[in-house]
């Protein structure tokens, strides 16, 4: 386990900035004087309290399975992939939001569309969306009861999406809560 390098930190924050409007709140000092830091172990980036990260140094790298919240994985090419486990950190400060109706929540979470796993959110399933959302920008998908279900990338801007037909794709899925079950084996290790 080690802290991130300059370049790694940039990559991680750049990805997070797609979804979160205020990044400063992520590393803001806590009431007890502690603060959150980023740590890397087995190419996975963790968002963890500094006190816990310091305690974790007593555990060897191989023995350390996970700590804090896993944000995602650093690829071998130096890119960063956000995992669904980052949703609790992204959701409170989401830049753009899409609310999916009940009829759309299930297909989104099950990720099954006749065996096709990468399902998109279609216009017919969208209950409402945040205004002034440009295309190809990160958005968090909520249910109508304001429960975050996952996140994705907008396919169209809000104005364009209004003119779309009901089967038109509004958002490309990046991660959904169904992954906790579907990718149970590989989500935290391997």
């Amino acid at each position: 386990m080690r802290p991130l390098t300059d370049q790694e930190m940039k990559t991680v924050l750049d990805k997070l900035a797609n979804y979160v409007s205020d990044l400063k709140s992520l590393i803001a000092p806590l009431e007890d004087g502690d603060r959150y830091v980023f740590r890397l172990n087995h190419s996975r980036v963790y968002y963890v309290k500094l006190s816990i990260a310091n305690l974790a140094t007593s555990i060897s790298r191989d023995a350390l399975l996970s700590l804090g919240t896993c944000l995602g994985k650093m690829t071998k090419t130096g890119k960063f992939r956000l995992h669904i486990t980052a949703l609790p950190i992204i959701a409170p400060g989401a830049r753009h939001k899409i609310w999916v109706k009940d009829n759309g929540a299930q297909p989104f979470l099950y990720g099954s569309n006749g065996g096709y796993l990468w399902i998109e959110v279609v216009k017919a399933h969208v209950g409402r969306w945040s205004e002034d959302c440009p295309e190809h920008s990160g958005c968090v998908v909520y249910s109508m009861a304001d429960i975050p279900l996952g996140f994705g990338v907008t396919a169209r801007s809000t104005t364009e999406a209004r003119r779309l037909d009901p089967t038109g794709i509004v958002c490309f899925r990046q991660a959904d809560c169904g992954e906790y079950l579907r990718d149970e084996d590989t989500l935290f290790a391997g």
Partner: peptide, 20 residues
């Protein structure tokens, strides 16, 4: 070279935020 101190983290964060 690791980035762990708060100042450098805030600097990178501000840069990334402004760019985005």
């Amino acid at each position: 070279v690791f980035v762990d101190d708060k100042e450098s983290m805030t600097t990178i964060l501000a840069l990334v935020q402004a760019e985005k």
